[in-house]
Design a binder for these strands. Structure first.
Lengths: 342, 342
DNA sequence: CTGAAAGCGCTAACAT
DNA sequence: ATGTTAGCGCTTTCAG
């Protein structure tokens, strides 16, 4: 692997100056005369010089890199957040090192170690479904690496978090449904161990209690966050001939599973069974009927988390940890807009 | 920013040995006695040592990093490919540096320069819609950095490419439709400048010609690859009262736009207007009717491109560039399965 | 089996 | 305005 890379000293030799002069000139340091700077820059261009990131960072003791750990990529929610974070990083002259845990706790840990090895200036993480050992995050903190958790948040104190107001969002959805006239409301709830599962369930509970509507435990099912689970949960209730009028799902893929199952057994949404979900995605506009949901403002999550991280990186001393809850909006489309049960 | 990082020499001092010994021990070098190795490893663990990637790579002159440049992330096709590439990289002990051009040529160029600066061992890129200046790729090649293009491929020779057999796939879809009985077939074709646009159009043309079905130029529209364009193209034909029986769209988002427009003007798919598209995504199963398509095997694209890249990295000398075309399959769901026009 | 020396490419501090 | 020195943390010779 012939390393054809041009180095500072290659340039320096050709010009009979020192590497320092070249280094400074290339970075536009005022020490160097305009004339020299110009000559150096031109030659560097001509020779195809590109600074060695590693060397530069090693010497400068910072990397201009931010680590990002997410459970999934090919998923609308995370995809959008990632994209926004990349945008912000780009504007602030940071590189993002994105790693994907694939919902695997061990892999997550390894990735974080790698990020530490890379000496990233900060880390943003959304933990995997499996994660229950938080030791690695302690390690990160001991190293004084700014750390922000987004969306999926571990149960530790004194950390930076940016999350959606899951509880409030679920409350909004259910309150809306109750006002419409719904009483028989089910909830496909994911896992209660994961904070989104728990919080969304609590919001559901809040609303039911608040409006004096009893919760039927048969209609509250736990299991997962994907299509498959939505499909199965629906089928289970269907087979028991015990379907509520409305199902509130913990994520939109779960709702997709419900759509699928309903179509299979020839039940019409929203007439026979109505649906509303937590989480927005473009897809929902293309369903029939279009799916109503609680919107998670991904861009705001990205903005806030980067804002906090960057601030923490810039002034680590006067920084106090922050916990941000992003408000949600109800997006009403073709479901959960009428109470039209016989 | 107190850098709390433990270094080799920190460990060395505590043990009264040299850094070299520690370095070797930590890497399991046979030079060092088992006993010493054990002691060193234990202390390293205890002190929370994590090797400095930059220093290691600087010294080793390679990075164990692979650069990846894609136009988009929050898009099923790229999301899937990225995810697969991450998996393969992980298994092979490489880190992926993912960059996103956002379909912007300038940004793409910048990203590639950054990757060069990072001294990645190889680069995989899918070019942006705008890219027409290929100079930067020449730079990469001059530096002897292995380079593989996937899906969106520039018009240069002697490069590694992994692409879907777009032309053959389009041919399959249209042939199938013609066999069903369709004659009035339209094509929403994206941009012909981009190779996927061009190749898919050619496949369409091949099939029409081959089966002796005339192409109606009014029904072949160019413009884009997204929902918006599908919507607009459909509306244009609709307003002119000049709709074909079947529309073949260059991507699935374009088909989504068609679904949207059709619903808006109360035309039923597939009875009033039938649709088939290039490109698969989970969404399609949740549409009514479920959308048929030409499948692009993302996992195979990821596998092949990584295989080629890794091989090129490992034995740069006996390596000859390769051009892989991945075969497609027709996935028939609820559209384009009957010719049921009045 | 262990260590001293040199260098990867760059930059900050301190001369000149 | 330019250069010298030293060092970032690690690894690869090469000697002992």
């Amino acid at each position: 692997m012939a390393d054809k890379s041009v180095t500072l000293s290659d340039i320096a030799k050709r010009l009979n100056v020192s590497t320092v002069t070249v280094s400074k000139a290339l970075r536009g340091h005022p020490d160097i005369s305009i004339q020299t700077t110009k000559v150096i820059k031109e030659l560097a261009d001509e020779m195809g010089y590109s600074p060695n990131f590693m060397a530069r960072n090693l010497s400068a003791r910072k990397s201009q890199m931010i680590g990002l750990v997410v459970p999934k990529i090919a998923h609308f929610f995370f995809g959008s957040i990632i994209e926004s974070i990349y945008d912000i990083a780009f504007k602030n002259n940071y590189e993002i090192i994105l790693t994907v845990s694939q919902e695997n706790a061990e892999r997550e840990k390894k990735h974080i170690q790698t990020l530490l090895s890379m000496r990233v200036d900060g880390i943003i993480v959304s933990i995997s479904q499996e994660t229950n050992d938080y030791e690695i995050f302690d390690t990160v903190r001991k190293r004084d690496i700014p750390l922000v958790f987004i969306d999926r948040i571990p149960q530790i104190s004194n950390i930076n978090t940016v999350s959606v107001d899951d509880r409030g969002g679920a409350y909004k959805a259910i309150s809306h449904a109750i006002k419409l006239g719904y009483r028989n409301i089910g909830h496909f709830a994911g896992y209660p161990e994961i904070n989104i599962g728990k919080q969304r369930y609590l919001g559901f509970e809040d609303a039911m209690n608040h409006h004096g509507v009893p919760i039927n435990p048969d209609w509250v099912l736990h299991g997962g966050f994907g299509e498959k689970y939505g499909y199965e949960a629906f089928m289970q209730l269907y087979k028991n001939n015990n379907l509520p009028d409305l199902i509130f799902t913990v994520t939109y893929p779960v709702a997709l599973g419900v759509y699928m199952a309903a179509r299979e057994v020839n039940l019409s949404i929203p007439d026979d069974i109505d649906v509303i979900c937590f989480g927005n995605a473009k897809v929902q506009n293309f369903l029939s009927p279009q799916l109503s949901c609680v919107d998670q403002p991904t861009e705001q999550i990205a903005n806030k988390s980067m804002e906090i991280l960057l601030q923490n990186i810039k002034s680590p001393d006067e920084f106090e940890h922050r916990n941000i809850q992003i408000d949600t909006d109800l997006i009403l489309r073709g479901t959960c807009i009428n109470f039209n049960k016989k």
